[in-house]
Nucleic acid binder design. Structure first.
Lengths: 242, 242
DNA sequence: TCAAAAGTGTTTAACTTACACCCATGT
DNA sequence: ACATGGGTGTAAGTTAAACACTTTTGA
């Protein structure tokens, strides 16, 4: 008790990177090249270096394993998982991070990057795709956290590129929560919230329809009044016709 | 990269126990008996055992160091602090926990319990009382978390004993947020929220005034609609007269 | 009968919701 | 002209804030 127990414990970081692709919430995974769980999908992550803080370690592992740069990437600590036998190799404690990225095309192709790929979150929660270690539990925590923080913070903008339209922002809420939101009331609500959005003055011309105003993230980090999930109807099931 | 780095890192837990005493938010501290920071105040905590999960370790250290039993104690993981030189003895990473207790008289007297004592949070934030290691930063995070969670969860009941009055519950919000709340609207709001409170049917007779109805915690963990801090006026400065 | 604290009812203002309607562009 | 998506106005409904008032106790 008088001296630290430097007794056979290792500390890792694991990162849950969420994004929206193809109108779905997706998470960035890597294929494990070594035992244990060789060939299975896992969260990007690795050991903290002897003189490194946890957050820089998370950013470093992300670059090394997925070639996803921290450029404009939102990153926050999620929680630490320390269940005794969560890693068959021994006592390994992991500090999990939640990251949120705009829909950047990750070099999922032939580069190194341990075969990094985007995977729909729904395919993990349904059990259709299995994850190594306790990484499914970590993803569940990350998704819960993201869903909560959309309510009281301006986190939704982290899913958008530096400049985005009102509809892109609204789709973030709709996809992450699985709800449908009235575009007109949404517009009023977010433009009324102080410093949530900053108009660029520019407009984006789409294939069809009236050009949409473009916005940047504002300075606010908390959102008042909050956007409450419970106020929106769940999205209707996809129509099997057409 | 193929084998865990079991390289000289130690993992501890530290616990921020908050309570309300004398109409003030207070935190449970112990006096350090050994170097480093001998004689200074610190959070209760210690090393995780080789085959122990983090949360049981937090409960165990609390019992060992402060004789505060986990009986009815709310406990949740706060976050992990891994700044390289936060402990002068070497690489020590700590998993911090937030606990909330009703106003239990802790055996702060002659027992072992490393001279555990309650300390007003304000005396720490003002710098009047110093803490060992980075424990001030940990307390700040804990207080922020508690203040936030009062808004969207039923956490406030964790500050109250098993059976409590409406006024005791309201004082939790007022003290933790430093606001003043209309007793009548508060009453209506919390009794309307589903499963926040469960009436016992009993009443408590005070020294003066009409007896207050007694309540128990209900089953709900989230609070809807939320109780928003921003909606309440800050408490006026104490009146120097009288 | 008074003081003090608990609890109810009512008015008024603020906010949300739903939706009719208008705007700006490409084809 | 019309289809498509962007954006504004507004009326109805809902919620919350302020506070007068009643209830129940001890002194």
């Amino acid at each position: 008790m008088t001296t630290p127990h430097f007794s056979g414990v290792a500390v890792t970081v694991d990162v849950v990177v969420l994004t929206i692709r193809d109108d779905e919430l997706q998470v960035l995974l890597v294929e494990r090249g070594i035992e244990p769980f060789r060939g299975m999908l896992a969260l990007p992550g690795g050991f903290i270096l002897p003189d490194e803080d946890a957050e820089p370690a998370a950013r470093r592992e992300l670059v090394e394993e997925t070639a996803l740069d921290g450029e404009g990437l939102y990153l926050e600590q999620l929680r630490t998982f320390a269940t005794p036998h969560r890693d068959p190799r021994g006592r390994v404690i992991t500090v999990a991070y939640l990251a949120i990225a705009p829909d950047l095309p990750v070099p999922a192709g032939g580069t190194d990057a341990h075969a990094a790929r985007w995977q729909p979150v729904s395919s993990l929660l349904s059990g259709a795709v299995a994850l190594a270690f306790d990484h499914l539990e970590i993803v569940e925590h990350a998704v819960d956290r993201a869903r909560s923080k959309l309510e009281y913070t301006t986190l939704a903008t982290a899913f958008c590129p530096a400049v985005f339209t009102m509809t892109e922002l609204r789709r973030v809420y709709e996809v992450v929560w699985g709800v449908s939101i009235d575009a007109r009331n949404f517009h009023r609500k977010v433009t009324n919230a102080d410093d949530f959005l900053e108009p660029t003055g520019e407009r984006r011309v789409l294939e069809t329809g009236r050009p949409a105003a473009l916005y940047r993230r504002g300075a606010a980090r908390s959102l008042f009044p909050p956007m409450l999930r419970a106020a929106f109807p769940p999205v209707p099931a996809a129509d099997p016709r057409s």
